[in-house]
Design a protein around this nucleic acid. Sequence first.
DNA 1: TCCGGGTGGGATTGTAAAAAATTTACCTCA
DNA 2: TGAGGTAAATTTTTTACAATCCCACCCGGA
Lengths: 272, 272
Amino acid sequence: MTLKFHTPLPPLGHLVSLFTYYKGYQPGHRIDRFLPDGNVELVIDLTDFPKQVYDNETLAVRHSFRRAWISGLRKEFISIHAGQDAEMFVITFQKGAARAITGMPLTELTEQVVEGDLVFGPPILALREALLEAVSPETKMRAAERRLLAMAGGDLQPNPFVQYAVNQILLHPGQLSLEALSNKVGYSQKHLIQLFKEHVGLPPKAFLRIIRFQRAIAEIEQRGGIEWSHLALDCGYYDQAHFIRDFKRFSGFTPEEYLRRKNGVVNYVPVG
Amino acid sequence: MTLKFHTPLPPLGHLVSLFTYYKGYQPGHRIDRFLPDGNVELVIDLTDFPKQVYDNETLAVRHSFRRAWISGLRKEFISIHAGQDAEMFVITFQKGAARAITGMPLTELTEQVVEGDLVFGPPILALREALLEAVSPETKMRAAERRLLAMAGGDLQPNPFVQYAVNQILLHPGQLSLEALSNKVGYSQKHLIQLFKEHVGLPPKAFLRIIRFQRAIAEIEQRGGIEWSHLALDCGYYDQAHFIRDFKRFSGFTPEEYLRRKNGVVNYVPVG
DNA sequence: TCCGGGTGGGATTGTAAAAAATTTACCTCA
DNA sequence: TGAGGTAAATTTTTTACAATCCCACCCGGA
């Protein structure tokens, strides 16, 4: 299996946090539950086989995507193709920065997976072609950098107010009042929420809950023996009862169940 | 109001942790709820007015005691005379050490208040007379020391195994397994429990829960703004829900209610 | 269009309680 | 002292409810 990562430098690095390329991953299962991770991703499938999104309960096929698609912010998990026989190039955007490339309010992508050409038009297929032509993972990364810079046009600066708000949330998930935040940003609470939604795709509090959940997920990965009540408080939950409730809302699993079922890949849990 | 404390030195200090003398305390209420504090106390009333124990719910008089009584370990609060017009001398025993003075298994005093002469016979009245004759608080303290040493006979060493167990519980309320404890002590679990009950009055785990509760009470006194879930974890509770449940079992109040009703004297809450 | 204000429903928080599943403590009886 | 049964505590999960906060919707002014 090939698995390569690349972190673009600025100015593209302001918009894109990570490129991931993989090929030949052969998991022992067909379907993954993909947890809300607070990221917007542009996925380019370098094979010709469509990839499915399944119904969370029945695991029946719901949607099918080919070549390129973009997945917006989600508050719910989705059930997706686990990646057998796949060759994928995944572009993960910086949080709150995707708008400069998508050119549309991020709310329009929220809770959705959307065909790439509906968002980007023909340039996305050109990007895919370029990726197919590039032979090594490294040249693919460079091709992607070039094409994305072109697609972004001149506008490579994410909105600084939103950026500040996003960073505050990333720094202090847990205790953070929207009132304090909007005061610091200098906009009215209502305006900040509008701005935030437009650039991030979710209102600030909802985004914060996802970040808090992700912090819990990260702690679970790192810690050995886990005491849920300590972990809950450390991650900013009021107590472990609330932690478990949130955990289940976002992941569909209770924490113990998640521990039992998770395998190596964070945010992807085998379900079928 | 007069209020004097005295901490006896060894060897009596092995058995007695504190003398308290007070006179002229005039609280604004009639009845106190006395919370379980893990202590055995010998109370000597230097007035002739009997002091009542009330029904916890109806506050009707349940028992009445005169001159001297001893109060064993309790898992439940009791409702007692708040101390108006009282002149009292209170002897607080070291935890797990009262047996050398009472001469009887502490289980026989558990959840009870017992007349002093039933336990100690005539010497307790002699002690009281001596306290009445002594004019200053300081001379009373010295008189009490002399009499108690005499009452203890030669046997001033508490059982070291029980003492060790008690200290372990005092040091680590929260995470402490009886199995580990009895292994360290070197007795079988069963034997340790028997010994512990005989000297302390309650089985180890029940005693531990009271100590843990007392730690919470102490933290509440010290901290300013209180976050229950942090306090609960710091005191060794599994989470704040369990803290609240235990708190209510022992005090009859929810933590917030306790905060509202408590006044200056720790472990005594006005109820009537 | 950009920004702020008002209103009201809904979600989150803080506090409390409790159910379900294990594990541990304790008691009895031999 | 030992074995084994029962009660109780712990761990994990769920639920309730009031107070507060968030934010969707609708409006108005610049």
